[in-house]
Structures are given as structure tokens and as C-alpha cells.
């Protein structure tokens, strides 16, 4: 009898109770990049459970998707601008059936039909944002921080935070030297590395899981941050300011894509449509502080959110803004090497 029970248990374990399992959407997204209420409401409306798995860099998202390619693990991912074109060109994505998507027409025309994905065959914009300077004004004395180059000030030794994102950190290094943040020139990248290496004694931590936390926890006072994180952080710590640096801000657009072997593309399409509803898009933008590309949703935003310069920059804020672009695998390898060295912090 005991043996029978054991055999039964093992059989159940190996097959994973397949028959009566509810529908599941495997969503692969940045950490803290979607309010739990949105996921709950989606499940409530459609009966599809959402499994939310997180990553903290485009590189690790991409590597994991490649690893899991055949096993069709994720139904939906949210790569940044340049990774959309990279993944599209490498044939890792499934075309999105626009007939299944509701609300696409509400999207800002300036953020659709971009070079990264002409006619949005493979991607639907989710949120866009900027990477700028965070300054804890209660702890930073003296000259106000206005430019990326201020991070190199001696007074900030051991007080700087950088995002744990290779392209963004090098973007800053390149900008300070006056190069393009999308440089593919190995010499310029090396120069940026040398420059950033000088900053390393000041750097306390890298964080892309929740870049606001080291500021809130009092570990760092100045450094890089994403605008949404700055907005969320300011709610808890009013002295945390988001500053548009003189050299220019880093801009990015994160889009939904469906991996080529997704198991449940139907649910993925449903989820995209769900998020594109003006009311939901507005809720997301309000809760996590990033800008929605959905024009109808922007109409619904409360005044203080729509006029928040951190979330929705003005035209002057965006003068020197540079969008991250696909730079090709060869240049990425150069970046990757210097990134490893930089993070080894010698």
C-alpha cells in the first residue's frame, strides 16, 4: 500500500498535474516594472494566471531567452529599444498579430514605427523613460549637481551609485568625454572605460533591481537613476531630486515582444491589449512613475502626474537626449570586456 502511494505521488510530481491546470502567462519583465494590481486585475478578468519573473539587465534577459529558446519558457518579455532590433534581426521574436491587439492606434506616433522595428511588426511600446541624475539634496552640500561630470567630484567619494547596466554606465562615460553614447569605436569605448575607472573609488554600488533603494537606505547620495524610480523614491524621501544633466539624458523605450517559441501567444496578445487600455496604462504610469506612450492614457492622468517633470520631461529637458541604439555584437563584446573589468573594480 505504501509503495502504491509513493508511486502515485511520484507520478503526479513528474507530470505536474497537467490536465486541469489553469491558463498561465509567463511574463519576463524588469523587477518592479508592473504594479501587482494590474496583474491581479488581468487574472480576474481573463482567468489567466500571470507568472512574473524578473531580470535586471537586457543582457541577462537576452541570454536567458537564448538559453530557454527551445523550451519556450516565456510568453512575453520587455526589452529596451536596441534589444528589440537585435532580437528581431536574430529571428528570436514572433510577429505580433495586430488584429488581436486593441488600442494600438492610441500610441504616440513618435514612438511607433521606429527604425528598431518598422511598422511595429514585432514589438508594442510599453513605457518609455530616461536615465538621469539622482541627488539627495539633504546630504549634498556645496555646489548643486548639474552634470554627469559632477559625479567625479572628490566630495562624492564612496557616495555614488551607478545602474547595473553596461550600456547606460558607458553612455555616461562617453557623454562626459563628448562622444556619442552609442559609440562603436573601440578607442572611444576604451577612453570611456579609463574615465569610468577614475570614478570607481567613488562608486559604492551598482543597482538595477531598484535603483532608488541605495538612496533611500542612505548608502549613496548621488548618481544614476531611472526617472520612474526617482518618482517612487521621492514619495518616501522628499529630498531625492531628479536632475537632467547638462551633457544630456539617456532615453529609452521598453516594448512588449513575444519570443518566437512562446507557448501561449494568445494570452500574450490579450495581455498587451489589456495594458493598452487607457485606464490601465494611466494606472501603471501613475504607480511606477514612467511615461506611458499611450496618448489616451495621458489624458486620464491626474494633473500632478502629467505635470511631473521627472516622469514627463519638457521639450527643453530633452534637448540633448539620446536614445540608445543597437550597436552590433562586435561592439557589444568590446563593451562587455571593459564592463567586466570595471565591475571588478581594481
Amino acid at each position: 500500500m505504501k509503495k502504491l502511494v509513493l508511486a502515485g505521488l511520484l507520478a503526479v510530481g513528474l507530470t505536474g498535474c497537467s490536465s486541469e491546470e489553469p491558463q498561465v502567462l509567463n511574463l519576463y519583465n524588469w523587477s518592479e516594472y508592473m504594479p501587482q494590481t494590474v496583474l491581479d486585475r488581468f487574472t480576474e478578468e481573463t482567468g489567466i494566471a500571470v507568472v512574473y519573473t524578473t531580470y535586471d539587465s537586457n543582457e541577462s534577459m537576452y541570454a536567458k531567452l537564448k538559453l530557454l529558446d527551445e523550451s519556450a519558457a516565456y510568453d512575453l518579455a520587455v526589452p529596451s529599444t536596441y534589444y528589440v532590433s537585435k532580437m528581431r534581426q536574430e529571428d528570436l521574436l514572433m510577429p505580433i498579430d495586430r488584429g488581436e491587439i486593441e488600442g494600438f492606434d492610441e500610441l504616440d506616433p513618435e514612438l511607433t514605427n521606429l527604425d528598431i522595428d518598422p511598422d511595429n511588426q514585432y514589438s508594442i511600446p510599453y513605457l518609455w523613460g530616461t536615465t538621469g541624475l539622482a541627488v539627495d539634496t539633504s546630504d549634498v552640500e556645496g555646489e548643486p549637481v548639474k552634470a554627469w561630470s559632477n559625479l567625479w567630484d572628490e566630495r562624492f567619494e564612496g557616495r555614488v551609485m551607478l545602474t547595473n547596466d553596461m550600456r547606460e554606465v558607458f553612455h555616461v562615460g562617453l557623454l562626459v568625454l563628448g562622444y556619442s553614447g552609442n559609440s562603436t569605436d573601440p578607442e572611444e569605448i576604451e577612453a570611456a572605460y579609463e574615465k569610468l575607472a577614475e570614478l570607481m573609488p567613488s562608486v559604492r554600488t551598482f543597482n538595477s533591481d531598484a535603483p532608488r533603494m541605495p538612496y533611500l537606505e542612505g548608502e549613496t547620495d548621488v548618481g544614476m537613476i531611472w526617472n520612474g524610480e526617482a518618482v517612487m523614491g521621492k514619495e518616501i524621501m522628499p529630498s531625492l531630486e531628479y536632475v537632467y544633466p547638462e551633457e544630456g539624458i539617456i532615453a529609452w523605450l521598453d516594448s512588449f515582444v513575444i519570443p518566437k517559441n512562446a507557448k501561449n501567444p494568445e494570452a500574450a496578445h490579450k495581455f498587451i491589449s489589456f495594458v493598452l487600455q487607457p485606464e490601465i496604462s494611466a494606472l501603471i504610469s501613475e504607480e511606477i512613475g514612467y511615461a506611458t506612450p499611450n496618448l489616451a492614457a495621458r489624458e486620464l492622468l491626474p494633473e500632478e502626474v502629467a505635470n511631473n517633470r521627472a516622469s514627463y520631461p519638457t521639450a527643453t529637458d530633452m534637448i540633448n537626449a539620446e536614445f540608445q541604439a543597437d550597436i552590433g555584437d562586435e561592439a557589444l563584446q568590446v563593451y562587455a570586456k571593459y564592463w567586466e573589468m570595471l565591475k571588478s573594480g581594481q
Binding site: S31, D209, A210, M213, P214, L216, E217
Partner: peptide, 8 residues
């Protein structure tokens, strides 16, 4: 792991 990496 993903929780403690986010912060306290």
C-alpha cells in the same frame, strides 16, 4: 534572491 536584491 530577487527580493533581497531589490532592497530591504
Amino acid at each position: 534572491y530577487s527580493m533581497v536584491r531589490v532592497g530591504l
